[in-house]
Design a protein around this nucleic acid. Structure first.
Length: 379
RNA sequence: GGAGGGGUUCCCGAGUGGUCAAAGGGAACAGACUGUAAAUCUGUCGGCGGACGCCUUCGGAGGUUCAAAUCCUCCCCCCUCCA
């Protein structure tokens, strides 16, 4: 009998089952194996807002996000590197994916200048100038030590015309090549994903994909969605692109979305998701439940002693009433943010775990239909 | 007892003749949030009707005026200081 059970190399992606376009797989990273489809809580500044790593483990988060731009600006990637990297610094021993700053090209558009060579950001904190070349974006992520690095890209705003989108796509591809050249496959166990852009034009999306898939990335992401477009437009691109992204590699839909968006993503063959919605909405009083969206601040919950979600096993639902959660929110209590976030992320993680199970059982369509029925009434 | 200050729409608080249903804040009510410049932002907030308007409202009662939350008289209440 072979005594050595060797762990597969980071980047190894195995598909254990499919149901239509949807897939149930496993991605190996330097900090553990991720079961897909997966939702990745967003922890921009080295923390999933209001939660501790212990909380993340409690609802079995498998991988979280960090952000290159924000951690570079504060506290600084070198400062983190001196402390042994982001995992050690924040005491999270699971996988981490870092976004490249490409989204800040979009969200901080007033504070940056784009050139063929990279992006110059004016810090949102003190206005100081910082140039992100593709190489710089990767070097920062090297310092952070993330398991999955994202290439620097331009997240194109909604409404951009064909010419702009086409040129931007060429830039994103050129940057992607430079990122890969700067960090060869297999180095440090850090994976690198390319990002498909192309706006809302299917030809441009295919063009982007054709160019990117020539570069040896360990995975591919669909970016530039949920930037202000209508739901049908988003679904159109999602269902067009998802199924034709490289089948043997993990597919990551960036920044999306609502529970139904995620089920649609899975249905379109996507394996990985991230979104600030469950965490941000939790802090703003909107909670996702098995019975639809609940706006906990509403007067109707003032004396409602039932649990937030009777089908949820999270600490919040096991322990507190809607009346109490409403009170905490209305009173602006810190605990409100924590309990709400705990619940929303539990719901999202349960959602994708359930999807994985359904895919393996061949019942994903039924699973999706069940949520559709609830969430089309309360989207 | 004397001197002064004050009572404004749920609360605090602007407003001292018309452009005031009355600034601003809070509370309340509702909505938004999608690779986090977000524990943030938006709307409503006297009543009835589409807008426009009409009605009721600024401690109480009366008065002046074309017009009063704003001016006058009396009354009620609160606060500060002096006796």
């Amino acid at each position: 009998m072979n005594a050595s059970i060797s762990t597969p190399a980071p980047g190894t992606f195995t598909i254990h089952g499919t149901d239509g376009e949807s897939r149930a797989g496993e991605l190996v990273t330097a900090h553990g194996v991720i079961e897909t489809p997966i939702f990745m809580p967003v922890g921009t500044q080295g923390t999933v807002k209001s939660l501790s790593p212990q909380d993340l483990h409690d609802f079995r988060a498998q991988i979280i996000l960090g952000n290159t731009y924000h951690l570079y600006i504060r506290p600084g990637d070198e400062m983190i590197a001196r402390r042994g990297g982001l995992h050690k610094f924040m005491n999270w021993d699971g996988p981490i994916l870092t976004d490249s700053g490409g989204f800040q090209v979009f969200s901080l558009s007033a504070l940056r200048k784009l050139s063929a060579d990279g992006v110059e950001f004016s810090s949102h904190l003190d206005g100081s100038k910082h140039f992100f070349s593709p190489e710089k974006a990767i070097s920062i992520q090297n310092n952070l030590g993330s398991d999955i690095m994202m290439v620097l890209d331009e997240c194109v705003p909604y409404g951009a015309d064909y010419d702009y989108t086409n040129k931007s796509l060429a830039t994103t591809t050129a940057w992607a090549k430079r990122c890969r050249e700067y960090h060869a496959p297999g180095t440090n166990g850090q994976l690198m994903f390319g990002i498909v852009q192309g706006g809302f034009d299917k030809d441009l999306r295919e063009k982007s994909m054709a160019q990117l898939t020539e570069i040896p990335f360990e995975g591919f992401a669909l970016g530039g969605l949920s930037v202000g477009e209508s739901k049908p437009e988003m679904m159109d691109i999602l269902y067009h692109c998802g199924p034709i992204m490289p089948a043997a590699k993990p597919r990551y839909l960036m920044g999306v979305g609502t529970p139904m968006d995620i089920l649609n993503g899975i249905n379109a063959g996507i394996d990985m998701f991230d979104c600030v919605l469950p965490t941000r909405n939790a802090r703003n009083g909107t909670l996702f439940t098995s019975q639809g969206k609940v706006n906990i601040k509403r007067a109707e919950y003032e004396e409602d002693d039932s649990p937030l979600d009777p089908n949820c096993s999270c600490y919040t639902c096991r322990t507190f009433t809607k009346a109490y959660l409403r009170h905490l929110y209305k009173a602006g209590e810190i605990l409100s943010y924590r309990l709400n976030t705990l619940h929303n992320l539990t719901f999202y993680l349960d959602l994708v775990r359930g999807a994985r199970k359904a895919i393996l059982a061949g019942t994903f369509q039924d699973y999706k239909a069940k949520f559709e029925e609830i969430y089309e009434k309360k989207p």
